[in-house]
Design a protein around this nucleic acid. Structure first.
Lengths: 126, 126
DNA sequence: TACTGATTACGACTACGTTCGTAATCATAC
DNA sequence: GTATGATTACGAACGTAGTCGTAATCAGTA
């Protein structure tokens, strides 16, 4: 029996920071704030506070060895994406994955993306 | 030029009521409350209040002709699903639809659903 | 017309998310 | 050892979501 992973759904601000952590790997508050500042104007302590809350929720882990704590995402990007998708499928698509895929693909979806999806489907054939 | 539709993202409680409205069609607060009561224990005035807020947000329209107002979803289920999916793709999948589809399909996805997706892909070929 | 039951309107309360200012703490340099 | 700058901790403030109680309103009936 495995089972665990509370599956806390990250809020929007939290997801923003997770995206940064997934991309950069473990980082200090300052590094994370610098990264987020390139696209938003969020105060340093705001980022710190959100990271602290995420730590309470176990969305991130942190290394307190040094003065400047080092934060890292607790779950993989893939894991989190899967849980977000499952949540949406159940709440807005009546549990139907195919319905979701139909809505996801539209005229703005590039040919490359559709090719990728075809490859995925093909790989499931065997 | 068309363009309009504010694209207000419904909250979770709002989405619950929208699902009921899409399924039942236009309905009174009482009917909606009865429907929601089969799965949850929510007060009548709570449902009423949420519907009033949704009306302010233009998520629903309402017919005030009769004493008991009749509410209806302002946007189609398809339209709302598309907007929710696009939102998730941009916030959690770096804008990649194919990545989302990859995460959406897993071992729990039935063969029928995968078939449906194959059909969709096939219909895009021409 | 007055009563009664149902419906809408209003507002209060709690919880959470987001923001940030200020205080406390620490490490380093002097 | 003390001052200085950076970092963490704390908590306040604001908005939104969700909940519901109570008041106001209306329609139909006795």
């Amino acid at each position: 029996m495995a089972r665990a992973k509370s599956t806390v759904k990250p809020t929007e601000a939290e997801l923003t920071l997770l995206n940064i952590l997934w991309q950069m790997g473990p980082a200090t508050v300052r590094q994370i704030h610098d990264a987020v500042s390139t696209t938003q104007k969020t105060g340093y302590t705001t980022v710190l506070k959100i990271l602290q809350i995420m730590h309470e929720k176990a969305l991130v882990i942190r290394d307190e060895t040094n003065r400047a704590h080092v934060y890292a995402a607790a779950n993989s990007e893939t894991h989190t994406q899967s849980s977000l998708i499952k949540d949406l499928i159940s709440k807005a698509f009546g549990g139907s994955t195919s319905k979701l895929v139909m809505r996801a693909i539209d005229e703005s979806t590039s040919a490359e993306e559709i090719d990728d999806i075809r490859q995925l489907l093909k790989s499931l054939e065997k």
